[in-house]
Write a protein that binds this DNA or RNA. Sequence first.
DNA 1: CTGAAAGCGCTAACAT
DNA 2: ATGTTAGCGCTTTCAG
Lengths: 338, 338
Amino acid sequence: MVTLAEVAKRARVTAATVSNVLRNREKVKPETVERVLAAINELGYRPNLNARALAEGRSPTLALMLSNITNPFYPEFVLAAERAARKAGFFLMVCNTDDNADIGRAYLNQIAGTLAEGMLVMNTDIEINELCVSAMNNAPILLAMWEHPEAPPALPCVAVEFAKAGALAARHLLELGHRKIGMLVGDGSGGLQDARHDGFAAEVARAGLRIDAAAVMRTRDSIDAGYAACVQLMAAQPDLTAIFATNDLMAIGAVQALITLGRVVPNDVSVIGITDIQLARQVHPPLTTVAIDTTAIAELSVTCLIEQIERPRQPPKMVIAPPPVLIVRASTRAPARG
Amino acid sequence: MVTLAEVAKRARVTAATVSNVLRNREKVKPETVERVLAAINELGYRPNLNARALAEGRSPTLALMLSNITNPFYPEFVLAAERAARKAGFFLMVCNTDDNADIGRAYLNQIAGTLAEGMLVMNTDIEINELCVSAMNNAPILLAMWEHPEAPPALPCVAVEFAKAGALAARHLLELGHRKIGMLVGDGSGGLQDARHDGFAAEVARAGLRIDAAAVMRTRDSIDAGYAACVQLMAAQPDLTAIFATNDLMAIGAVQALITLGRVVPNDVSVIGITDIQLARQVHPPLTTVAIDTTAIAELSVTCLIEQIERPRQPPKMVIAPPPVLIVRASTRAPARG
DNA sequence: CTGAAAGCGCTAACAT
DNA sequence: ATGTTAGCGCTTTCAG
């Protein structure tokens, strides 16, 4: 490994000067800069980031902790977060907890405050309180997708108005004329997707209607689970004309299930989801959904975390993400007459 | 930040002893161990991994570089690699190059040999030669999915017998009785999926048949691109009874396209892919495909990389992944008579 | 079994 | 404008 000292020797200066060349473009004579740069090149020198982090007392990396990268929503988020981090001069280290709180804790203990300067946390099975303790002892932690804007947590966060998303979905279905609506409520790591459910139900209530409790299925947040739940749901409530899923994955599963059951989507049954993951556009029929601005959330998260890093010990701040937007595609339409 | 020294002070020993407690379970008197552990606990001490890495001259992390985490294949690989790395006591740092060779180079320069002890490289736009140079100067690099087992590269790698996968797909289609077969050949980052194409073509030739060059479409490796290419293909060659895609994503896109075109899958047209990503099971109809053992490849990659790290300067070794396996689902069947 | 001391590669005052 | 000097927090001989 080529070190600073070797470069310095070759350029006939001291380590300090090389270090200066490496950051301050000023205060070193152009001629010397030249010589140092040449030495760096000839030797193929690369700074040791560990040593630098140790000396500087900070490291140029951010961590992103998520429960399972295999959920198609996360890669989209990771991509956006990584871009934002890079733009700000940080690496992004993805920590997959594999749906295991212990692994999450291990990451928290080991990484936060040493390998990474701060941590973005998506839904994990770790309690907020526990996260707070980590945040106290180590690096700042930001909740990247807080589902309850009305109740700011004790940690900085980016809040997403999921209740509003649910309401938009409800309004769309109601305006189309649907009255018999089933619900698939997701239970991913991070708990039930309550806000979405409640927002939907509230909007329905506002229209003077209500959802039959028997038409609400709680299930894991995945295509497979959505499929299975939908099959069950349609068996129990065969006259539903529309299904709202709190997440695109379940919605996509529901569409598959309906097709298998011989129901035409959207002619016989409409389906709407939340998130607008890429896949929502790519399935057939393309899914009507309420879009969450993943990119914006990722960027806000990174920005806020960096802010926390630069100005620590601030009171936790909650930032609200751009509001959700209804995206009408081909999986919803007015119910058939009769 | 709590340091070793503070722990030492509190436990009335020196840093060296604390350090010993932290690794050697022996050579420290149980009584002292007790005291040290207590101090660690009371103070909430967490070792600084940068300092440790600097002192030890190595760091407990592996890097995985890939072109775009948004391609659904990668998350599955990441998950498996992360598990394998964790089992071996390493963190896994995911580096997304965003399909940009310059970003890839930046990661290579910065990370390899300092933040990470070695790097797993999936298809990226960086040339092997360039990687070799990095491998020389810095940490070991392993090609995690080499497509040409017959031509070992200058770097250690895990090779996947994609030609065999293509051949299996061909045999399946031929055995079903298909003769008019179209092909969607992917052109992801990392170049054309030649081996798969060639393996397929060779098997067809062995049966005394051949694929019409006009029935071969080259396109980007994604659902959307597969959709578009399939639409084009069916317009040009309306009498195809089967489509082979070198990748599940394109195959899934093709299925969607066929449905849109009013062709029933598999009754009118059969579709087969390669890889067996999760989604292949979750679409409707479930996709027949040739499975690549992603988990095994990830585990082998991690194992081999660690081997390289522990015994550097070995001649590059090529490990062959378990052979591909045909998975028959519902997207293929014998062609209709006439 | 424990302590003292050197050093990993780099940065950041402070001198010159 | 450049050199000197001290660490950053930890590991690791080497003594005692």
